[in-house]
């Protein structure tokens, strides 16, 4: 297996903003208010370059998903700095956050497809958000062909297997050629082979479209697709390494 060895510690020299997709600076985040206020992220510094595949791991409750949703412009932000695709998210209104989301593809643990819509219609919903009516069907069909579902475009989710549904969800996330893809445990609901296929597919499409992928996963079988692995523990960025270094330092045998 080959891996890019662009190991980027968080204090690595700044890249020009042209090459940076996501830049997180001194980010703190809290849940709750008043006495119940609890800090979940502590001084996070992270930069994702364009075209990188970054996997975020860490134990449950470490704040991975919170960080993912923050980068995805799904939460309000008050402190620190979070720049996504050249747009500073801290201080943006709800409506402005919605605009940012339109440049991001989300892939969830569940496929979240409408049972009432065909595969193509589910993908078309993503094209419609950009007010692109003319060739939406054509774009959806092409995208579904790229994820290997050319024969299934007019099937409803009920007639598709778990892996096929997740591929429809990927097609939906990628059809607008977003610059950033955020994935949350995309393989958790799939068997080994389908999970592998889905990740490989994401990797291939990401390289073709040159987009950045940030993926949260517990699935050790897919760590090797990553250019970088970021480990988050108790809200702190514990390590930021390439796969080889990560597998050496985090191998249970090596820790003995």
């Amino acid at each position: 297996m080959s891996h890019l060895s662009n190991d980027l510690p968080s204090d690595s020299p700044h890249f020009s903003s042209e090459e940076i997709a996501v830049s997180v600076r001194h980010l703190d985040y809290y849940y709750g208010q008043g006495d119940l206020r609890k800090q979940v992220l502590y001084d996070i510094n992270l930069e994702l370059s364009k075209g990188q595949i970054v996997i975020m791991t860490g134990p449950s409750g470490s704040g991975k998903t919170t960080l993912l949703t923050l980068i995805g412009a799904l939460r309000f932000l008050q402190e620190g700095s979070l720049n996504v695709l050249g747009q500073e998210l801290v201080g943006l209104s709800k409506s402005e956050l919605v605009e940012v989301r339109r440049n991001i593809g989300f892939i969830f643990q569940a496929h979240n497809l409408f049972d009432s819509l065909t595969a193509s219609q589910n993908v078309e919903m993503a094209v419609e958000v950009l007010q692109d009516w003319g060739n939406k069907r054509q774009r959806a069909v092409e995208m579904l062909a790229q994820v290997g579902l050319a024969e299934r475009v007019d099937y409803k989710p009920k007639a598709l297997s778990g892996g096929q549904k997740q591929r429809v969800a990927i097609a939906r996330a990628l059809v607008n050629q977003p610059s950033l893809i955020l994935a949350d445990e995309p393989t958790a609901a799939l068997d080994k082979q389908s999970g592998r296929d889905v990740v490989t597919l994401m990797q291939t499409l990401a390289k073709e479209q040159g987009c950045t992928i940030l993926m949260v996963t517990h699935d050790n079988r897919i760590l090797d697709v990553a250019d970088r692995i970021v480990n988050l523990v108790d809200g702190h960025l514990e390590s930021d390494q390439n796969f080889t270094a990560f597998s050496q330092t985090h191998d249970p045998k090596a820790l003995v």
Partner: peptide, 15 residues
Amino acid sequence: DHMKQYATLKAMGYR
């Protein structure tokens, strides 16, 4: 029944 799908639409940028 469709809360997840509606939330997904919002994540996609629907208002």
